[in-house]
């Protein structure tokens, strides 16, 4: 196993490209243990993912549950340790950070979670919730903290601030709770926001409000944003590029319109087909979506991860060999043998 990895990582380079975030051949594998000890294989949650993100750029990582998007996100947040590969963020190499460096690294990345109610400690007031990151990151002056809290609450439009600051999460509506989560992510003035399905738990009528808020913050603070979602229909309101993930790998990368109008990977096609728009005609047609489930990440199939479900499988190739990254259209990359001649 190690040999394969070694081979894969042989030609790594860490040249500075001026990007805010560089993800280099990232492998996040979780070791499975049998009866608490003894190696029983790996869960290949993220399997050789590379990309770059410039300051102020917003990307969307789209995929179904278990595709590795959450593991990728947690690794970028510094919560998971990659088994191979590295992340360079704002000049800091994740693998070489000590405790202090890790604090600084984490303080520059804001985290917006999916379930706003679960993401807020229920026993803390909004003030204490927003105070925590400041205290932990060494803002000692209570006046300065108070000012910063009020400022960030204004920014996420939790105003008048005094109506909210002493409240507890359960007293707020879902949309307001999510604003608190965003305020907490913003309070340390990060350069990157990782938003994990920030609107999927919210009602339709507030979803848009939160998406617009994130968009405004991104623009006004020149934030880089990684927007993680399963819902293709929301990404174009927010991101420039889409990464489609399937079974630990990025199956397709391109700008939003390219993905929506010219999907190259059959999985992306299926996702687009499956995504509904409110249209009465939907009820009269059957959707052509592949049956089955994503593969096990412990024993992924040989060849392309998607080949067991793929309607366009090329027998003898897709089921045997790992597809490399093809670029049939400039800046539109895909892991699919269909484009081997491009």
């Amino acid at each position: 196993m190690a040999e394969i990895l070694e081979k894969k990582l042989k030609d790594q380079d860490f040249s500075d490209t001026g990007a805010l975030l560089q993800v280099k051949r990232l492998h996040v594998w979780f070791e499975l243990r049998r009866f608490g000890f003894g190696h029983a294989g790996y869960v290949r949650a993220v399997d050789d993912v590379s990309f770059e993100l410039k300051a102020g750029q917003a990307i969307a990582v789209v995929g179904e549950s278990g595709c590795g998007k959450t593991s990728l996100m947690k690794t970028i947040l510094g919560l998971n340790t990659p088994i191979k590969g590295d992340i360079i963020f704002d000049g800091m190499k994740l693998s070489e950070l000590d405790r202090k460096g890790m604090m600084e690294y984490r303080s520059k990345i804001g985290f917006v979670q999916q379930d706003p109610y679960g993401a807020l400690p229920p026993f803390m007031s909004i003030r204490s919730i927003l105070d925590e990151p400041l205290i932990i990151n060494g803002v000692k002056d209570p006046k300065e903290r108070n000012e910063r809290i009020r400022q960030v609450m204004e920014e996420v439009r939790l105003s008048p601030v005094d109506d909210f600051i002493e409240k507890f999460p359960h007293m707020l509506s879902g949309g307001q709770q999510q604003r608190v989560v965003i305020a907490r992510a913003m309070i340390l003035e990060p350069k990157l926001i990782v938003a994990d399905e920030p609107v999927s738990m919210l009602d339709a009528s507030v979803r848009v409000e939160i998406l617009k808020l994130l968009e405004n913050l991104q623009k006004s603070h020149n934030l880089a944003v990684i927007y993680i979602t399963h819902d293709l229909s929301t990404v174009r309101y927010f991101s420039e590029r889409i990464f489609v993930m399937y079974a630990g790998k990025v199956a397709e990368k391109a700008v939003v319109d390219e993905i929506l109008n010219n999907p190259l990977h059959p999985y992306t096609e299926a996702l687009l087909t499956a995504t509904s728009e409110p249209d009465a005609a939907n009820a009269r047609i059957y959707k052509e979506v592949p049956p089955g489930e994503p593969p096990s990440l412990v024993n992924p199939p040989t060849g392309c991860n998607y080949h067991p479900r793929c309607p366009k499988i090329i027998e003898g190739l897709c089921d045997l060999e790992d597809p490399p990254e093809f670029e049939p259209v400039p800046n539109h990359l895909t892991l699919c043998w269909l484009h081997k001649d491009a």
Binding site: S205, R207, V208, D231, Y237, N261, L272, P278, D279, A280
Partner: peptide, 30 residues
Amino acid sequence: SFFSAPLHPYAQKLMASVPRLRGDQELEFI
């Protein structure tokens, strides 16, 4: 008729808040 033209203002707003894959419609919220 509902999906093409909802009548109640709430339904209209709700429909206008649905993100779409294509089209240039501006999203609204309540």
